[in-house]
Design a protein around this nucleic acid. Structure first.
Length: 258
DNA sequence: ATGGCCGTACATTACGGA
């Protein structure tokens, strides 16, 4: 079972690239973020023709999340169970593989500038995600909570810690909120299968950041104990960043024993 | 310094992103 998360930064602006990458990474489940399209405008037909079952929570202009699955999806929920949110940032479903996996796809708020109302919203969102994860863990099932966390977990997850010191992605409050979710018993899949420093999932469009490898690791898969038991490896599909008109994020793939 | 982001929208600039 291969489960990917990928912030596509507009599905319409790069749909041919998205289709090509989906084919190449050969996953069973893909969580997409930053669709930047309304639910009705999602390219259901093309993706269904390629064998995907789709669950979508879209929004005009900004945000928007989707779940793609080669297996049937059941128990689809849109939005966090623990919060009223007018932004399309969370979708979850039960993936009916031989061993069912529950998969949540999230697009956590950026939070800049900090301090300020946007940072407050980010921290509120993370607190609600914590409550949601706590409830989900009670089921003791394979559970994967993946997406763009807009969180640089530690100093070695960015190319230059000093450049991010005052940024909402790296502030102590953000890192603490992320750790709290891990402390519930959700494991960072990359950390336990790879764990190398300076492995990135995002590179800014500006200043030749990708060529200089000036990136940050902000796309994560957090997994329940039952999913961690099956976890074999994590792949960061860097190649997606070198294509024409790329997203600024690349797919991160968790590989699980079936 | 010989270069210097991207996508969206009530668009020709403002905004959100990270």
């Amino acid at each position: 079972m291969r489960i990917a998360t990928w912030n596509v930064n507009s599905i319409k602006a790069r749909f041919p690239t998205v289709q090509e990458v989906l084919q190449n990474i050969d996953c069973d489940v893909v969580c997409l973020q930053e669709l930047k399209c309304e639910t009705d405008a999602f390219p259901y037909m093309e993706l269904e023709e390629a064998g995907w079952n789709c669950a979508v929570l879209g929004q005009k202009s900004y945000n928007g999340v989707a779940l793609l699955s080669k297996y049937p999806l059941e128990d689809v929920t849109k939005g966090l169970s623990t919060m009223e949110d007018d932004q399309a940032r969370f979708i979850e479903a039960l993936v009916m593989a031989e061993t069912p996996f529950r998969v949540g796809g999230l697009y956590l708020p950026n939070g800049n500038p900090a301090p300020g109302p946007k940072f407050d919203y980010k921290l509120e969102w993370m607190a609600c995600l914590l409550d949601h994860a706590r409830e989900r863990l009670k089921a003791e099932e394979p559970y994967v909570l993946c997406g763009d966390y807009n969180t640089i977990p530690t100093a070695v997850d960015c190319w230059d810690e000093t450049k991010w010191a005052d940024d909402a992605l790296a502030l102590p409050e953000t890192r603490e909120a992320f750790r709290r979710i891990k402390n519930l018993g959700m494991t960072d899949a990359f950390e336990i299968t790879d764990g190398r420093a300076h492995q990135y999932t995002f590179w800014d469009y500006q200043g030749g950041a990708f060529q200089k490898d000036h990136g940050i690791r902000i796309d994560h898969l957090l997994v329940s104990p039952q999913a961690a038991d099956r976890l074999q490896s994590v792949e960061i599909y860097r190649k997606a960043r070198s294509l024409d008109k790329p997203s600024d994020h690349v797919p991160v793939i968790g590989v699980f024993e079936d």
